[in-house]
Design a protein around this nucleic acid. Structure first.
Lengths: 100, 100
DNA sequence: TTTTGATATCGACATATTTCGATATTTGGT
DNA sequence: ACCAAATATCGAAATATGTCGATATCAAAA
C-alpha cells in the first residue's frame, strides 16, 4: 500500500469518478443483460460508455486503478467486470490518515 | 476543498515529507535561534536544507501546499514560517473518506 | 544606504501524464 | 473456421509536472 502511488491515481477526475460510480452500480448503470447482477461490479463497456472518453483511455484507467489494488477485475466470457476492492480502499484511507 | 487538487499535491514524495516533518518540528529540525519556538511552524530555510532539493523547488512546493490550504505561512522579519493547517488537513481526510 | 540572508519568481529543459486512434487479443456465436 | 463484440496494447501528440540556476524582492543589520 503506497499512499503516494494511490494518490497519483486518485488525482484524476475520471478515475475518481469511476470509483464513485462503482459504489452504486444499480443507480449509475443499466442492468447487465447477461448476468442480471452487479456482484462482480460493472463491465468495462458500460464504464467506457458513461465516461465520454475513448475505450483505450478507459481501459488504461481501469488498469491503473487495478494496479494499485483499488478495483478487482473478473473476466466472464466476453466481459470483464470491475468491482471496488473495499478492503484496499479502507486500507488506503487508514494509511493516509496515519501518514498525514 | 477540492479532493483531487489536494491529491495532486500529495502525490509527490517531497511534498508529503514536508507535511510529515511539520508534524514534529522539534524532532525534525534544529531550534529556531530567533524565535526559540515552533509556534508558527518551521522556517523555509530549514525545510530547504533538509530536503536536498534546490531552494526554488522547495519554495515552489511550499506555495503549492499553501495554495490548497494544507499549510499556513507567517512572515516574521526575514523568515517565513510554515505550519500545518490541521483544520484543513482534517477536512481533507473527512472529504476523501466521504467521496471514496 | 549598502550589504547580506531568506524567500519568491522566471525561464528553461527533461520527464511524466493525458488522451487519442489504430491495431491486437480474447471469446462467444454462426 | 470465421466474424463480431469486449477488452488490451501500442505509438504518438499535446499538455503538465519536476527541477534547476539565475534573478528579483524584501527585511534586517552594518
Amino acid at each position: 500500500m503506497n499512499v503516494i502511488e494511490v494518490n497519483k491515481v486518485l488525482s484524476n477526475k475520471t478515475r475518481m469518478d469511476i470509483l464513485k460510480w462503482l459504489k452504486n452500480p444499480e443507480k449509475e448503470f443499466p442492468p447487465h443483460k447477461e448476468l442480471g447482477h452487479f456482484d462482480f461490479g460493472v463491465c468495462g463497456q458500460f464504464i467506457y460508455e458513461k465516461s465520454g472518453l475513448s475505450q483505450s483511455t478507459i481501459s488504461n484507467y481501469l488498469s491503473q486503478l487495478q494496479n494499485v489494488g483499488l478495483i478487482t477485475p473478473t473476466r466472464i466470457g466476453k466481459w470483464t467486470y470491475f468491482k471496488r476492492n473495499e478492503e484496499q480502499i479502507a486500507a488506503f484511507l487508514k494509511e493516509i490518515h496515519k501518514e498525514l
